[in-house]
Nucleic acid binder design. Structure first.
Length: 258
DNA sequence: ATGGCTCGCGGAGCGAGA
């Protein structure tokens, strides 16, 4: 199964990009983040026409996540979960579905703004809640994939200029510790299962010609439970759509599993 | 050099993103 995640930074603006990239990649499952539209404006019919069913949790202006599933894969409707159960949150950041027996979670982790801010405190609380929920999900679903925009660069090699970024939002020790705690639950960073080109990133600032200079961060990830990681044969970042006109600032990440 | 782009919203600039 070809699993992918992509922060599209407005599905309204990037609808055609998503359709073109599905055609190009032939992904079976595409997790989307930052839809930035309410549910009534989700282009369900247009995606259906291209052979994908959609599940989503949207809201006006900000956030919003979805899962696109290619026709023919089995989705158990009763397994759809929106948001982290028990975590009170007005922001739509999580949707889960069981697809061909694999628990797939699309997540848009909070940005955090800067260490010491209220938004950073919210990010850490959200990460704690995510940790505890994933622990219980893993107990029920041996095959689990947590895909999304984590807004965390796990290691210095995931940062174009570690010195300039030291201690800042997205790379701070607290955030990296939270990422490590997710890994300790028994998840595997599929990207690091394989040899990768140095300085591979998933996000580049729109400003400062950052993409051209490859001044980026690796903050979008596909974490797999160990039973699923055992069947993972490939993972990479597809920079192709980042080169298209009016691109998202993120590139899709792709993993191949059983 | 703390800006630089690109969104949504609303119909001018501003907040937010990362």
């Amino acid at each position: 199964m070809k699993l992918a995640t992509w922060n599209v930074n407005s599905l309204k603006v990037r609808q055609q990009h998503v359709i073109d990239w599905l055609e190009l990649s032939q992904a079976d499952v595409l997790c989307l983040q930052e839809l930035k539209l309410p549910d009534e404006k989700f282009p369900r019919a247009e995606l259906e026409e291209k052979g994908y069913r959609s599940w989503f949790a949207g809201q006006k202006t900000y956030n919003g996540v979805g899962i696109l599933v290619r026709n023919g894969l089995q989705v158990d409707e009763a397994t759809i979960v929106r948001n982290i159960p028990g975590f009170e949150d007005s922001q739509q950041r999580v949707i889960a579905a069981t697809i061909n027996g694999i628990r797939v979670i699309s997540a848009y982790f909070p940005n955090g703004q800067a260490p010491g801010t209220d938004k950073f405190a919210y990010k850490l609380r959200w990460l704690d809640a995510m940790h505890d929920w994933i622990a219980s999900e893993l107990a029920q679903h041996p095959k689990l994939a947590l895909l999304g925009d984590y807004n965390i660069a796990p290691e210095d090699r995931d940062v174009h200029d570690p010195n300039a970024w030291e201690g800042q939002n997205l790379v701070s020790p607290e955030e990296r510790a939270s990422f490590a705690r997710l890994i300790e639950l028994g998840l595997v960073d599929s990207f690091r299962l394989f040899d990768q080109p140095e300085k591979t990133f998933t996000w580049w600032d729109y400003r400062m010609l950052a993409f051209r200079r490859n001044a980026g961060l690796r903050i979008d990830h596909i974490l797999l439970s160990k039973p699923l990681a055992e069947s993972c044969t490939h993972c990479d970042v597809d920079k192709t759509p980042r080169k298209w006109d009016q691109p998202s600032d993120h590139a899709p990440v792709v993993a191949l599993t059983e």
